[in-house]
Design a protein around this nucleic acid. Structure first.
Lengths: 229, 229
DNA sequence: CGGTCATTTGACGAGCATCAACCCCTGTGG
DNA sequence: CCACAGGGGTTGATGCTCGTCAAATGACCG
């Protein structure tokens, strides 16, 4: 692990206030590894061995039950994932796979638990990070429980539009992955785009034009409490 | 607030390891209050003033969007709720209403944040509690995303059966509330019960008989990672 | 150039919501 | 004691939402 990479991790809010000694101790036994695309990193029923930090690439957290599978969330660099699992010493609860070639730092979960007990600042930051993750899932839960597929897509497009800032937005993932994240099938995502055509949504591959934000918003009814800016 | 009630709160895992002085300081400005049934305690967009602890009664956390409403979770005594919101100083993210007459201890959120910084043990317990809440929402999210309404009902009945231990189980809430928790309408809950009749589910008001657990399980496909014992 | 895969479109059916009617129990007031 | 109103629960009819299966298109890659 190069020093530049270590600095990237150190700069994360979760670790930025740790004492240097505690940070170094925590990294003992951890390793930085590159995985190809489409590799399953762990399964939801596995015991949590490592806290993961996505340094580069893209990772999907997903879950399976009753012969079905669904995306829980997408991880973009640089971010930790499965922090909650690493802290309580149980199963991962979600499975993970790489979507693209990815570089991932894996820190033994045991080290994380030791660090929490040893380092005050880390414990406080862990509280804030967990509360933030909690509200993230709450938002996702509200999204799927209170909105239809078309409404979820419309809100997703509005969020991406605001994040990317430009006139036309580019989908950051394949449409099949987007469909799974929205909780619908790829076929229905395609139909949902058609449904949004009268609302000024022009689709050209991964490039989307929103030509009538007002109408789209009146359909989507965006909510600050669901849609993360 | 009587001493006996204070002891009940003190015994919660979240507070059990706190220093006495910190615990007392945290309670300053908090108050124990009884609310009648059907009272809205706070709305999801309100700023978080208090950590709530349900001492007696029953509380529903719910959310609204796009002119729809859905139950997020049900709180049973004795338990804290909206801990994550109290810790980060933002909106509640969920609304709350009493289902029955309820006794609730309200602790100023500011006190909670102070206690987290002052008391090591409390910070650690908050981490564990938040991680547990997080996995709770993840389970709810998987439940609604990967199962049909009938499957959710079947799994709910199996969980209640195991919790209550007896031959016949009694629904702890009105069917309309159960429906909202399962993410379906009351009408469809009624039909879901009919669908389960061939699987040995006999319904008599709030009393349910499961006469063929094996068949019901083969339909429900219960998962340790979704269904909390 | 052939093969694989993402995407799209169409046809069909399952899952579920909505609206309306009805039953039943409870509480209230005459 | 009875009539009545209100609310939870059930049932039926209807239609929207969405998944499944099949097939066609087009892009990328070996």
């Amino acid at each position: 692990m190069r020093d530049s990479e270590k600095q990237i991790v150190r700069a994360l809010p979760l670790f930025s206030g740790m004492l240097e000694a505690n940070f170094e101790a925590m990294l003992a036994g951890s390793f930085l590894q590159r995985f190809p695309a489409t590799v399953v990193l762990f399964s939801e029923s596995d015991l949590t061995d490592f806290l993961h930090i996505l340094v580069d690439g893209q990772v999907e957290l997903f879950a399976s039950a009753n012969n079905r599978e669904g995306t829980m969330t997408l991880i973009k660099p640089v971010a930790t994932f499965v922090l909650a699992s690493a802290l309580v010493d149980g199963a991962y609860q979600m499975s993970a796979r790489t979507l693209t070639s990815s570089q991932i730092l894996m820190i033994p979960a045991e080290n994380i638990r030791v660090a929490m007990l040893a380092d005050r600042d880390f414990a406080h930051k862990a509280v804030l990070e967990l509360a933030s993750c909690y509200h993230g899932v709450v938002r996702a839960y509200k999204n799927i429980k209170l909105r239809t597929g078309v409404e979820r897509l419309a809100n997703y497009l509005l969020v991406q539009h605001r994040r990317q800032g430009g006139d036309t937005l580019t989908l950051p993932v394949e449409k099949r992955t987007l469909a799974s994240m929205l909780g619908i099938t790829p076929e229905n995502l395609s139909r949902a785009f058609s449904t949004l055509k009268p609302y000024g949504v022009k689709v050209d591959g991964p490039k989307i034009d929103l030509q009538n934000i007002k109408d789209l918003e009146s359909l989507a009814k965006p909510s600050e409490l669901i849609d993360t800016l």
